[in-house]
Nucleic acid binder design. Structure first.
Lengths: 201, 201
DNA sequence: TGCCTCCCTGGCACTCAGTGTCAACGTGGC
DNA sequence: GCCACGTTGACACTGAGTGCCAGGGAGGCA
């Protein structure tokens, strides 16, 4: 029974993931060709060969195509962060965690185009920030640990500030990276940003 | 001729401002009563006694009612920042400039309710951050001056990072302030946030 | 093979935000 | 009284996002 369900689940999951990938591929092509705002969901659905209604069963919003599992990545960052010993100071730990997740596929030509589109499209930028804010909520508790602050102390801004600061640095680095057409090194930009904010390390 | 135009302009401006104020007042009442997302523009327009179409001649989006002149305030912050001697280091200058603009009307009961609504409504939160990002563009040049960086050097993330960091601290402070029901002091929260981010001053 | 069930899909209708267009109106200048 | 200008409201339209329901395909079971 369980194995059957698991197999079924696997089939579903696989075809579902295939659909995700196909829709994303098709949509990205259209985005890079006509711009994000210039592409309608009807167009994407038609090109992908599904109904408009089905599209919304895969993606909640048009922005989600581009931002994809950004919210999901937040959980990933959190997991990695929690796997780093609490003795490691906040900034180093965050750098390590953010890096391992965000820095993997970010040297491709496509990633650059996506990044540029993101910084040029207000609605996309806004959603991206929204997702980053969700990261914040997930990462703050662990940073509290590292600071030696009570986990339920809602009055201490330190951990929130550090996480928000780190994410802001990531954002700034990405922005300048995109503006430089990918000529600069994202990791180095991030480090310089963190140093500028006041952290000497 | 000029005086006539000025007078006319004054009349227009005045009635326009009155309309702004009235729509804002009415909308805020509805928002605080039914929530932001639970209030439609038709409702606001009907309550304010104007047509739906006219509403959009005053406010581009529903969010603009709440965020109002936040974009405008960016220019204000910039002006104040530019009036501070360049010998003053970035963080102190930013603190001073942000403070004089943002800290004025922020102790009222209404401001607290608005802040709470903002931090509870994703679309509002996103728009607010989007506007804050526009501040960033306006403030970076002056911070570059204080850092002694070439104004047209697009590769240096330092100034961007500092401004983004300061704004992030402001955001965090506001968030915790709202969460504490206004019990904590916003200025002190901001200072603690800045200190936590790494700036000792 | 035939039936049953479950989920996925598409189609339809709807709400709501936001925009373009146009005719009507009101006021101020000549 | 006439003209010009800006404002207003009405209408229609697009586009995003949601609820609902009927039909279809695939597997389980007799």
């Amino acid at each position: 029974m369980i194995s059957v369900m698991a197999k079924q689940d696997d089939l579903w999951t696989r075809s579902r993931q295939a659909a995700y990938a196909e829709i994303t591929r098709v949509a990205m092509e259209l985005f890079l060709e006509q711009g994000f705002d210039g592409t309608t969901i009807d167009q994407i659905a038609a090109t992908a060969g599904i109904s408009r209604r089905s599209f919304f069963r895969y993606f909640g919003t048009k922005e989600d195509i581009v931002l994809g599992d950004l919210a999901n990545q937040g959980a990933l960052v959190r997991e990695i962060l929690e796997s780093i010993p609490v003795s490691v100071p906040p900034w180093e730990a965050l750098r390590e965690a953010l890096w391992r997740v965000d820095g993997e596929g970010l040297q491709s030509e496509v990633a650059l185009k996506i990044a540029k589109m993101m910084y040029e499209t207000p609605s996309l930028r806004a959603r991206s920030i929204e997702k980053h804010l969700q990261w914040q909520e997930q990462l703050v508790p662990n940073i509290r640990l590292r600071l030696g602050v009570e986990a339920d102390d809602a009055t201490d801004p330190a951990a929130d500030a550090i996480v928000a600061g780190a994410i802001a640095c990531l954002d700034v680095a990405g922005q300048i990276w995109a503006r430089s057409d990918g000529a600069l090194d994202l990791a180095e930009l991030y480090d310089r940003a963190v140093r500028a904010v006041g952290h000497p390390g």
